[in-house]
């Protein structure tokens, strides 16, 4: 197995339509190295998939890029801002949806929307307009007055997505956004993501559903904190001469 060659470090990080750049990023928790010297770029409008088993370092990477976690070493920029110094500015440019679909269960659908819009400083009028706009594809207003806890998982997932993109972030971080969701809801969800990306939103997504790799423009396979493969799905399939990303993944990881 060959290590992918790291991106050219001489590239100017803020230009060239790059939404995310990461160089030699690491994070240690005591003795444990959760993320071990990773480097990659994500282009504007790209769907960049992070594949890996639980504990491979996917969530830790996302947390460092969203300003939730301080890296132990390495550099990175998100939306042109430095992840060490300007994480407050980064927060205005990103949307984040976590694997738990973190919503308030006792709040109604609209209340969740207004709350998350509110903490991004959007006016109620602005939120109302955005919600109406998003409703065209997300179909949430039909259940606007239902409490979130009573919704099926597929709905919660769409609501969480809506909350994450109310403020029109140019970069969207999705941490296992389809966990536990059935295939039909997953297809619907990915259709939304592909449309967002097609309209210019950069999507950084982690998943352990290998069939979802097909939706990504580029994949990076993580194992024990390292990126062990990174390329487009078709190039990876060609390289390992297999039609199944899952088989390739198992081959790379289970040794």
């Amino acid at each position: 197995m060959t290590r992918p060659s790291p991106p050219d470090p001489s590239v100017d990080l803020t230009k060239n339509g790059l939404a995310v750049t990461v160089r030699n990023l690491s994070r240690r928790f005591g003795e444990f190295v959760a993320v071990d010297d990773i480097s990659f770029d994500v282009k504007k409008g790209e769907i960049f998939g992070f594949l890996g088993a639980n504990g491979a370092g996917k969530t830790t990477t996302i947390r460092m890029l969203t300003g939730l976690l301080e890296p132990s070493s390495g550099e990175g920029q998100v939306g042109g801002f430095d992840i060490h110094k300007d994480y407050e500015k980064i927060k205005t440019r990103i949307g984040y949806m976590s694997q738990k679909f973190s919503l308030y269960d006792d709040l109604k659908v609209v209340e969740n929307l207004y709350f998350f819009g509110g903490i991004y400083g959007l006016s109620r009028e602005h939120i109302r307009m955005r919600v109406a706009e998003l409703d065209q594809s997300l179909n949430l207003l039909a259940v606007a007055d239902r409490k979130t806890m009573s919704l099926p998982l597929g709905f919660k997932q769409r609501l969480a997505l809506a909350c994450a993109i109310l403020h029109k972030p140019p970069i969207l971080f999705l941490d296992e956004p389809t966990g536990g969701v059935d295939p039909i809801a997953r297809r619907y969800f990915w259709d939304l993501i592909s449309t967002l990306a097609g309209d210019g939103t950069t999507v950084f997504v982690t998943t352990h559903y290998m069939d979802e790799a097909e939706y990504c423009h580029r994949l990076s396979i993580m194992y024990k904190g390292k990126i062990i493969e990174m390329d487009s799905p078709s190039a990876i399939k060609k390289k390992y001469n297999s039609v199944s990303i899952e088989d390739i993944f198992i081959k790379l990881v289970d040794r």
Binding site: T66, L68, K91, Y96, K100, S102
Partner: peptide
């Protein structure tokens, strides 16, 4: 516990 704190913390708050 529910993860909503994380969701709040990624906002510019």
């Amino acid at each position: 516990e529910t993860g909503t704190m994380e969701q709040i913390l990624v906002s510019p708050i």
